[in-house]
Computed example of a mutant assay.
Amino acid sequence: MLALAPAGPASAETTGELIDPETITAIRDQMTSGGIAPEAQDALIAKLQAGEPLDSMIGAEPVDTFTVDLPNATRTVSEFADGSRRWIDIEKPTTLSAGTVSPMSSLKGCTLSGLWRINCKLGVSDAITTASFQFDYRIAQTKHDASIRDYRAQTCGNVFGPCSVKGGIKRATQNSAGPAWAAMTYTAKINKTGTTVQSEIGIRVQDTTVSTY
């Protein structure tokens, strides 16, 4: 879910190239981490230089979606017609060793504790922005009672400067209205004229099925 807010009139300070060389380097690094080929990066940077948002930023339908198995996370990649990508990572839970006793606050990373997955992080990235939040979730066993708790540690980073975030738990426990659900909305600039995009990431847990968007 994305929305675009137009910038106001350009001032003398914001005319000319919209992206400086240092920012272009940061954007290329971000694109490379998402698997975007160098030749596609050139076209996408030219689009941003012209003041246009990428398809991945404005809610366009992806032309392809696929999953990548990373060492510590499962990544879902959406690829768009202009060559841009948006990728969502959800941490894989690891299991505590038998007999381990540790306060939950001291655990690092997504940890499996019974039916609960503790300290898990959901993150999203595109060419210019990264955003994430942490939470705990529990899959259902015999009842339809999958749950999400303790939404926390929301973050957002943007190559053009600050971005704002807002989120929380929308449905703590699965019920007849739908799955357990947590989500975060973030707003970020896409060029130095002040044009912004807004997007949402979320996790839903229905019985034993976990889905992200």
Rank of each mutant, 00 (worst) to 15 (best):
P62R: 11
S105Q: 15
A37P: 00
V165G: 08
I148W: 01
D55Y: 10
Q174W: 00
V197H: 06
T185S: 12
F66A: 06
S211W: 01
A98C: 00
D29Y: 12
K166V: 09
T25W: 06
Y213N: 10
K92D: 04
G157Q: 15
Y186I: 07
K143M: 11
S106C: 02
R85Q: 12
P103V: 07
A146G: 02
E200F: 04
R138A: 07
P9F: 07
T15L: 09
I201S: 07
Q174K: 01
A188V: 11
T25L: 11
N191L: 04
S125A: 15
G114N: 05
D126A: 06
D136W: 07
Q206H: 08
F80R: 01
R85P: 03
S211I: 08
E22D: 09
K47W: 01
R171L: 13
T74A: 02
P103N: 13
S84Q: 14
A140E: 04
F133Y: 15
S56I: 09
G59P: 12
P9M: 07
A188P: 02
S56Y: 03
A146R: 00
G202E: 08
N175D: 15
H144S: 12
A183T: 05
L48P: 01
A73S: 12
A50T: 06
N119K: 14
D150S: 10
D64Q: 15
Y151D: 13
S199V: 02
W181Q: 03
A3K: 09
G168D: 15
T155W: 14
E39G: 03
I88D: 02
T15C: 09
F135K: 05
F66L: 06
T15V: 11
G161N: 12
F133H: 12
D145G: 00
K92Q: 02
N158S: 11
C120F: 06
R85G: 03
L107D: 05
T185F: 07
T74C: 01
A73Q: 06
A183I: 04
Q154H: 10
V77F: 11
P103Y: 10
L96Y: 00
K170M: 09
F160R: 03
E17H: 07
T212H: 00
F66W: 15
T111I: 11
Y213V: 04
R204E: 06
V63H: 10
Q134M: 15
P53W: 06
T130G: 10
A37C: 01
V68E: 15
T111M: 05
R171D: 04
N191W: 03
Q134E: 15
V210Y: 03
R28N: 08
A140M: 08
F80K: 01
L44Q: 14
